[in-house]
């Protein structure tokens, strides 16, 4: 199984390569990618230099152009595709069918991956992308159990990639409007979930209070691990008491699921976190490279080594084990 690692900057990409990534995914500094954060991402020159470096070291680079093209602004997405192809990207990760159609038509030799943002969660949807746009791989949304992933991998004529570590969405990838509702900006259209421009942190009566736009998202007591101020992971007051209504602030860690994912026929394992620093990238990539080596040698896979890097300092295997069913 390939290890697919995030990079938000050229330095992070170099660290991911050095730590043992088989491939690195990254994006341009604009709203064509779903991590459009201040100070993050790659200029055109940085992308070309970084791809050349990765290739010298035997790693691949996958360029994420995975937001949905804005009406009247399609040229931005076309230019991103053209520039990524010119920079010798090994694959493009795309969510929008219009952008996929452009890739297939203008650059038929370019390898195409279906982004998790496309929310392709059944064999028919995936096969559509394969048949229509010659997609070679699908990044599966984090809504599927391992048996469901195995059934899909068996049924489709393309590779499958699944997330194994990092921030976890509320299982509506590509369809979530919570950030848009609160701030007017969304990961789908603008490349930002809960944008920094709308976030406030305040100390109130000894508690850390996080707000997003007009909404109080959470209050953390002294000594309690904090989390991102996303609406899906907010703690809300209801008639039943205060609690996490949608999802606990927790990160995905599927280390213990690696043997089952291998058995399921998964081709590639993805680490989330292009917005994270080099320290996160280096440590998570190195840890999973060691885990995969152990797996290949039939040794026990070490687990729970990354809790300190996780949101809320807690981890989950998410939908891979649907214990709530």
């Amino acid at each position: 199984m390939e290890l697919i690692c995030p990079a938000g900057t050229p330095s992070a990409l170099r660290d991911a390569v050095a730590a043992g990534a088989d491939a690195i995914y990254c994006g341009f500094s604009d709203e064509t990618n779903a991590r459009n954060f201040p100070g993050l991402n790659f200029s055109r020159a940085e992308m070309a230099e970084s791809i050349a470096h990765a290739h010298d070291e035997g790693a691949l680079v996958l360029v994420a152009i995975n937001t949905f093209a804005r009406a009247g602004g399609f040229e931005l997405w076309q230019r991103a595709v053209d520039d990524a192809v010119d920079a010798k990207a090994d694959a493009l990760i795309v969510a929008d069918v219009g952008v996929m159609e452009y890739v297939a038509r203008a650059h038929p030799q370019q390898r195409l991956h279906v982004s998790v943002q496309a929310a392709a969660a059944n064999p028919d949807a995936i096969q559509f992308y394969v048949d229509r746009f010659n997609a070679k791989r699908v990044v599966l949304p984090r809504v599927l159990s391992v048996p469901e992933i195995a059934a899909i991998a068996k049924a489709v004529k393309c590779e499958t990639e699944v997330f194994i570590f990092g921030g976890l969405c509320v299982m509506e990838e590509g369809r979530c409007s919570l950030s848009s509702y609160a701030t007017g900006k969304s990961p789908n259209m603008d490349g930002v979930c809960s944008p920094a421009s709308h976030i406030q942190y305040r100390e109130e009566n000894g508690m850390l209070v996080s707000r997003l736009g007009e909404f109080t998202i959470n209050k953390f007591a002294n000594g309690e691990a904090a989390a991102y101020p996303t609406l899906c992971k907010g703690r809300y007051q209801t008639s039943e008491g205060a609690g996490y209504l949608f999802e606990d602030p927790s990160s995905l860690d599927a280390t213990t699921m690696l043997p089952e994912l291998k058995k399921a026929g998964v081709s590639a394992l993805k680490i989330e976190g292009r917005q994270r620093g080099r320290a996160y990238i280096e440590r998570v990539v190195r840890t999973f490279r060691q885990a995969l080596s152990a797996l290949d040698q039939g040794l026990p896979v070490p687990s729970d080594a990354l809790r300190g890097l996780s949101e809320g300092q807690s981890t989950t295997v998410g939908a891979y084990k649907k214990t709530w069913r």
Binding site: A196, F220, A279, S310, E311, G312
Partner: peptide, 21 residues
């Protein structure tokens, strides 16, 4: 690059306020 800023925030080792962008 030896510490990840987000992780330091989660663990409450650092505090940030003001203009988050």
């Amino acid at each position: 690059g030896s510490y990840d800023g987000d992780a330091l925030f989660f663990s409450r080792d650092i505090h940030v306020d003001g203009d988050m962008e």
